[in-house]
Design a binder for these strands. Structure first.
Lengths: 248, 248
DNA sequence: CAACCCCTTTGATCTGTGTCAACGCCGTTT
DNA sequence: AAACGGCGTTGACACAGATCAAAGGGGTTG
């Protein structure tokens, strides 16, 4: 595994405001840079870490796209999240000092390695950093609650709409188009994340396309009617299958 | 269960090893006691906090039983967890400095209030405490991943079996019987947590009873065959049959 | 450039769970 | 003690999504 000891150069990273707390002094940022000075590149398909691996560091995604998944003994698995540039990976490992999921690069990627012991040391000295780290962990908990609500209460098309809107919003926050993007994951991985089978995901895509909400071409997605997608989500009554306009 | 004293008296609390880090000196425990010296009693049905309330403290459950739930605009809601003595509530509020779920007492309960700003201060001074708090947050993340797996991949009876085994294990850790306990929540709340309707929960209970796995009488549960319950979980049923060694 | 493999789409059918409805139990109120 | 209301159980039926099956793209690899 290629590890580059280039300066991480947080101070020049364009993901700063996603990754770092606001309000750090220049000196504080430099201390953080020293801490996170090691990077690691991963080819598509390679693991950043695996379940059971000893926990030593958390990772800030510099470029690329990841998924995390958990595996049950009987072989069933579940994608627990998709992570993109500026997001933090690895916090699952803190509790047992070993990772409890797998993190896999879905495209060629690069991460900044943040040794955890040193991060704790530094965050006990820099109040802003400590608070920020706690917020990042808490945000993960809140996000998970959102996924639980999605899995527990939403129907297939609602789940997919929520998923697309979430991706769109996160791409937007990174300066990419909110209306057009490239999916890095397969239908099966989307399905695993959403608690659906790949065929169901595919059908929902097709149905959204037929309804004029999105354009789909393999992994290329164009959001044509984001208000319409939001409407799919806030639909109050469970039934309301197909509107009887086009019966025959 | 005689537990009183106006002082929180962590040093005399029988939940210590669930709630506090091992290896604190006596002096450190005393500083923590000072911090968590306020308690709050809640009657069954009352809220410890509500979605949107400003975040100021986290709470250690001293006695009682809680649920947390999140609400969507359209009225759908989802129970995100059940918490019992020794567990920590409120970490959802850190990220946005406001709570993102409701916490409700399911029986008369008492919590220790831990003002968050002071906890951060103290944890920056006591390394063991800092590490412990990070582990508690991380454990919550790992737990949530488990729930996601449950909601995403398990069938109704598997979910209920996992739920019962989890409760049993947590009661055991608190010195209660692992085989016999009282459910504090309704079938509907169980269903919400497990992503099922209350009728499905009820049917699964009945089926487990008919199979001799458990005894059910309203909210009173007796686990008769915990190995059988575990077997429900690891059933490899839908696909997968013994695959003969392939073409020779 | 061609062959292959993986991914995706679509159709037909099956099934687990939701939905609707009725009734019974239990604790509480008056 | 009787009446009430919330909670739990059970049955009949409906439907969303799973499963099984087959065929069509696209990109990678030799």
């Amino acid at each position: 595994m290629p590890i580059h000891a280039l300066k991480a150069a947080c101070s020049q990273c364009n993901l700063q405001e996603l990754c770092l707390p606001l309000g750090l002094t220049e000196g504080e940022i430099q201390r953080l840079e020293t801490l996170a000075s090691t990077r690691r590149k991963l080819k598509r398909g390679h693991h950043l870490y695996r379940t059971g691996a000893p926990f030593e560091a958390i990772y800030a995604i510099k470029t690329g796209f990841f998924k995390t998944d958990v595996l049950m003994e009987d072989g069933r698995d579940q994608v627990t999240g998709f992570q993109m540039a500026g997001e933090i990976l690895g916090m699952d490992g803190i509790s047992l000092e070993a990772h409890s999921c797998n993190a896999v690069a879905l495209e060629d990627s690069e991460v900044c390695i943040i040794p955890f012991a040193q991060l704790e040391q530094l965050s006990s000295e820099i109040r802003t950093l400590q608070r920020h780290f706690h917020k990042v962990m808490s945000r993960e908990i809140v996000r998970d609650h959102g996924v639980m609500m999605l899995l527990g209460t939403m129907r297939a098309e609602e789940r997919l709409a929520a998923f697309l809107l979430n991706l769109s919003q996160r791409f937007t926050a990174r300066g990419y188009s909110s209306a057009e993007f490239h999916l890095r994951m397969t239908r099966e991985e989307i399905g695993s994340y959403l608690g659906l089978k790949l065929e169901t995901v595919s059908r929902a895509f097709s149905h959204f396309q037929d309804s004029g909400l999105i354009g789909v071409q393999q992994k290329h997605i164009r959001i044509l009617d984001s208000a319409g997608l939001k409407a799919v989500l806030s639909r109050t009554s469970p039934p309301v299958a197909a509107i009887p306009i086009a019966a025959a």
